[in-house]
Amino acid sequence: MGRLHVVTGKGGTGKTTVAAALALALARGGKRTLLVEVEGRQGIAQLFETAPLPYEERKIAVSHGDGEVHALAIDAERALLDYLQMFYKLGSAGRALKRLGAIDFATTIAPGLRDVLLTGKACEAVRRRDKRQRPVYDAVVMDAPPTGRITRFLGVNEEVAGLAKVGPVHNQAQAVMRVLKSPQTAVHLVTLLEEMPVQETVDGIAELRAAGLPAASVVVNMVRESLPGEEQLLAPHRHTDQLTGALALAFSHAGLGGARAGGRAERLVAPLLAQGREHAERVALERGLRTELGAQELPVRELGRLSEGVDLPGLYGLATELHDQWHPGEPA
């Protein structure tokens, strides 16, 4: 398994939730993970019910077995100051540039530069070692931009390396691409079992593969539970009519009224069956979308829908689901 986990997905699929759950899952058993946010939305802080994340790595959660999840909201301007200090030793001159607005100007007119800084900071966390030369983090999880622009986001360093033939910029861009295109990196695409997110996921996988970037898995989020008897609900109408009669009779025996009461049971059964049939048709559509995702020849993992919405207990539950699917047979 890689050490940099990039989580992407169409807007509304819950990619930030999946990234947070993955960070918790990877921290199990005493490991340390870093959960990185690059879009400035403070979604991680909201999920973990903590204060907005500063531009510094901060412990935000403890996972099963005393694992630790740290988090970082990367700010492009601060990352540029770090970059200037690291490669050009500007120090106070870099701070003066910030006061003059030069850094904001640079990152605004060159969005590619912003992506270089964001990916570079995450890759630096992957490469970082402690005094014993052990990785500071066992895994880094990035809550990345949406699927529609993930290939450009991850591949921008290759463009920069081609433009700057020599020097620190070239070397840094090459170092980042060595991480992103190596087995250390895994890109996970989050989707729902709906036509548009699935199509965007399929397109995203194709784009990542064409760019030589490591599409690693698909995570299907908010999966509906199947109901008993769905096949009968999808059967031809003559079978449904038989089912309607049988249910009306059962309702009548249960004291809900029958023909003598003006057909109240029949009137009750019909709308219930209509709702059930609508659900069953939805499940049949999802079955076809699962087949389409399976054709991508990537591992597909599924997370259930949280009935109470996403809160901390629900997040830990999703982390357990991910752990169990990544490591079947291991103790929970």
Rank of each mutant, 00 (worst) to 15 (best):
T244E: 14
D138F: 10
A102D: 04
P328D: 09
V126T: 01
G304I: 05
W326D: 11
H64G: 06
G314P: 02
A102M: 10
M1L: 12
A206H: 07
T291Q: 15
E39W: 00
A173S: 11
S92F: 03
K98R: 15
A19P: 02
R178G: 05
P299C: 12
P228K: 14
V169G: 04
P111D: 13
D241W: 08
T151Y: 08
E292W: 02
N221R: 05
E194I: 13
V140H: 00
E49A: 10
E297I: 08
I44A: 12
T244Q: 15
L268T: 13
L154A: 05
R152C: 07
H70G: 00
E225K: 12
P145S: 06
G329F: 10
E37I: 06
T107G: 02
A71H: 03
T33R: 14
A173V: 03
H253Y: 11
Q199C: 05
L273E: 06
L113M: 06
A27H: 11
A210K: 15
I150R: 10
S226Y: 14
H64C: 06
L256M: 06
V141F: 09
G329L: 12
H5F: 14
V223M: 08
R129M: 09
A173E: 07
G29R: 15
K131C: 14
T291P: 08
Q275G: 05
A246G: 00
P168V: 08
G294R: 15
Y88S: 08
L4H: 05
Q42P: 08
G288Q: 12
G29D: 13
S307H: 12
I44N: 11
D203I: 04
T17L: 04
V156W: 10
D66I: 04
A19N: 02
G258L: 05
G120E: 07
I150F: 12
G255N: 07
G317Y: 01
L118C: 03
L234A: 13
D203L: 10
P168M: 04
E225N: 11
P145K: 08
E292K: 11
R287Q: 15
L272N: 03
V38W: 00
A102H: 05
T107S: 02
V36I: 03
L256W: 09
V176P: 03
A246V: 01
